[in-house]
Nucleic acid binder design. Sequence first.
DNA 1: GCATCTATTGCAAGTTACTTGCAACAAGGC
DNA 2: GCCTTGTTGCAAGTAACTTGCAATAGATGC
Lengths: 125, 125
Amino acid sequence: MRNTRAAVLVGDLLRTYAKPLSIQELHEHVRAHLPSTAYSTVYRIVGRLEAAGRVHRVDWRERGSRYEWSGLPHHHHIVCSLCGRSVDLDDADLGFSEERVRAATGFLVDHHSIELEGICPSCQR
Amino acid sequence: MRNTRAAVLVGDLLRTYAKPLSIQELHEHVRAHLPSTAYSTVYRIVGRLEAAGRVHRVDWRERGSRYEWSGLPHHHHIVCSLCGRSVDLDDADLGFSEERVRAATGFLVDHHSIELEGICPSCQR
DNA sequence: GCATCTATTGCAAGTTACTTGCAACAAGGC
DNA sequence: GCCTTGTTGCAAGTAACTTGCAATAGATGC
């Protein structure tokens, strides 16, 4: 994968922002630095990053599908339904283990996705 | 909401099948009994059922969005990535509690969605 | 049962977000 | 610098989902 200007901008933002971003949001970011960049370019960069395993997709129901840097430790998200901010949670915070699912169902778990929505502490005030 | 023939077919299938179904699948079922039924009719019936709270949407990533009868006890699913069959899991099977999330993050949880994918016991053989 | 009212339907067209073909372009190796 | 080939911008193409509208059919009251 070539280090084109747009690809570097997309990769850097995903890596440093460390939260899921939509292609729209990535596109806006790239255009701020390289105004001629097309949506389809960002779309394809993200596809390449995903194929290379450097990024993975996250679905936030009403908020659409988003992409997050894969180098982060495994975690899930809780998104504030008022302000949209997200906080990370790991399996231990949730009491989750694949072992437990295995015991309950006999399934060998490949993949799990946990998405939570609620009101964050600051919006509760 | 009127008890039209198509709406009764959709509602009955969702209630008795008790597993998430796509609009496509519901449409095929309705057409088997009422061949003239349009996709958009099923689409709107499901929308009405959802608005009435009798059905809710479930997202199964690659398998698309599906709808499930709401009268069932709260649960999640693990879907076999080979045969597509799903098994229900409740929060206790997962060790999950909103209280725990509250303690870890301070968020008031509105809604949570947990979807698992793996290999079912019979496909493991 | 029959008339009436209005939700519901079928059809076709519209919208949206996502995908792709292709010729021009530019990153990286030599 | 020059060439090779991955990338880009543009515009057009999909597929799935939505909607407008005139015709239809549940439901209600008589």
